[in-house]
Structure formats: C-alpha cells, structure tokens
Amino acid sequence: HEITLHINGRRVKLRFRDEKAAEILKEAAKKGLDEEELKKLAEELWR
C-alpha cells in the first residue's frame, strides 16, 4: 500500500504494509515529523 502525505507543502509518498502502519504514519505527520523521519519510520514499520 502507499499513502501520500502533505508535509511542509510537499507531497511525500510512503509505503506501508497495513492499516495500523498507515495510522502510525498519519499520527507522526500530525506531530510534526519531517520527511526524513517519516521515511525512516515507514521503513521500520515495513519490517
């Protein structure tokens, strides 16, 4: 699955395995994680 989040006016595509991962990524984006941090988090969730 993929999700596209808008971060600092940019579109960031993240891959994720399940809905739980999608929710975690959305929450992290709301908390203000930047693009690099979100990509790292997405990679961690993928494993």
Rank of each mutant, 00 (worst) to 15 (best):
K13V: 15
R11A: 15
K31Y: 14
E35L: 12
R17Y: 08
D18E: 08
D18H: 06
E36V: 13
K31I: 09
A28T: 03
K20A: 13
R11K: 14
E37I: 07
R15Q: 06
D34G: 13
K39N: 08
G32A: 05
E2L: 11
L14P: 00
L25R: 00
V12T: 03
A21C: 07
T4M: 08
D34V: 09
L41E: 01
I7A: 05
L33P: 02
V12A: 01
K39Q: 11
F16P: 02
E35I: 15
R15W: 08
E43Q: 08
K13M: 07
L38Y: 02
K20R: 14
I3K: 01
L5M: 07
K13R: 14
W46A: 02
G9D: 04
I24M: 10
R10S: 07
E19W: 14
A22S: 07
E37D: 12
E43C: 07
L41T: 02
H1M: 13
L25V: 06
A42V: 04
L41S: 01
K39R: 13
H6E: 14
D34I: 09
L33A: 14
V12P: 00
L41G: 00
E36L: 12
N8G: 08
H6N: 14
N8M: 06
V12G: 00
E35G: 08
K40S: 12
K30R: 14
K39V: 14
E36D: 13
L33I: 11
E19K: 09
L14T: 01
E43G: 07
K26Y: 12
H1F: 15
K40H: 11
A29Q: 06
E23K: 10
R11L: 15
I24N: 04
A29R: 04
I7G: 01
G32Q: 05
E37Q: 14
L41D: 00
E27D: 12
A29H: 12
K13A: 06
R10I: 09
E44A: 12
R10M: 09
E2V: 14
L38A: 02
I3S: 01
K40I: 12
R17P: 05
L38R: 00
A22P: 05
R10C: 06
F16H: 07
K39D: 04
E36W: 13
A28L: 06
W46F: 06
I24Y: 08
R17Q: 06
G9P: 00
D18K: 02
R17V: 07
D34E: 11
R15S: 03
E27N: 11
K31P: 01
A42G: 05
A42S: 07
L41W: 04
E23W: 09
G32H: 05
W46T: 02
E43R: 08
G9S: 03
A29F: 13
E19M: 12
E44T: 11
R15V: 05
A21M: 07
E36S: 12
L14H: 01
H1V: 09
R10T: 08
K39Y: 15
R11I: 15
N8Y: 04
L41P: 00
L38S: 01
K26I: 13
K30D: 11
R47N: 14
W46M: 04
G32K: 04
K20M: 12
L41R: 02
I3Y: 03
A42D: 01
E37H: 13
L25G: 02
E37T: 10
N8K: 09
L14S: 00
K31W: 11
K39P: 01
A28W: 10
L5D: 00
W46G: 02
V12W: 01
K31A: 14
G9V: 01
A21K: 02
G9A: 03
R17C: 05
T4I: 15
A29S: 07
L5Q: 01
L45E: 01
L5E: 00
I24A: 10
L14D: 00
E35P: 09
L41Q: 01
E43N: 09
E23G: 11
L41K: 03
T4G: 03
K26V: 12
R15Y: 10
K13G: 03
G9F: 00
R47P: 04
K20P: 08
A29M: 08
F16V: 15
I24F: 08
E23D: 11
L25K: 00
W46I: 03
K20W: 12
L14I: 06
N8F: 04
V12Y: 03
A29G: 06
W46R: 02
W46H: 02
I24S: 06
G9Q: 03
F16Y: 15
K20S: 12
R17G: 03
E44V: 13
F16E: 00
R10P: 00
K40L: 13
E37Y: 10
A22E: 08
H6Q: 11
A42K: 01
L45N: 01
K20I: 09
R11N: 14
W46P: 00
E36Q: 12
E2D: 06
K13H: 11
E19T: 10
K20V: 10
I3E: 02
A21Q: 07
E37P: 05
T4F: 08
D18Y: 06
R10H: 10
K30G: 11
E35Q: 06
A29T: 05
N8A: 08
L45G: 01
H1S: 10
R10W: 03
I3N: 01
K31D: 10
E44S: 09
E37V: 08
A22W: 09
K20T: 09
E35R: 06
A21F: 05
E2A: 05
K30A: 14
R11W: 15
I3L: 15
L25Y: 04
L25Q: 00
H1L: 11
R47H: 14
K20E: 09
R10L: 08
W46V: 02
K31C: 10
L33M: 15
R17F: 08
E23F: 09
L5W: 01
E23P: 03
A21G: 10
H1C: 09
V12S: 01
E43M: 08
L41F: 06
K13T: 15
K30Q: 12
L45M: 09
R11S: 15
H6G: 05
A22G: 14
D34S: 15
T4S: 07
L38T: 02
E36A: 11
N8R: 08
L45I: 05
A28G: 08
A21E: 05
L5S: 01
E44C: 09
R10F: 06
A28H: 07
I7W: 03
G32W: 04
T4N: 06
H6I: 15
K39W: 12
K39H: 11
I7D: 01
F16C: 09
R15D: 01
E36T: 13
E2C: 13
R15F: 08
E19R: 12
R17A: 07
I24V: 11
V12C: 04
K31S: 13
A42E: 06
K40V: 09
G9I: 01
A42T: 03
L45A: 02
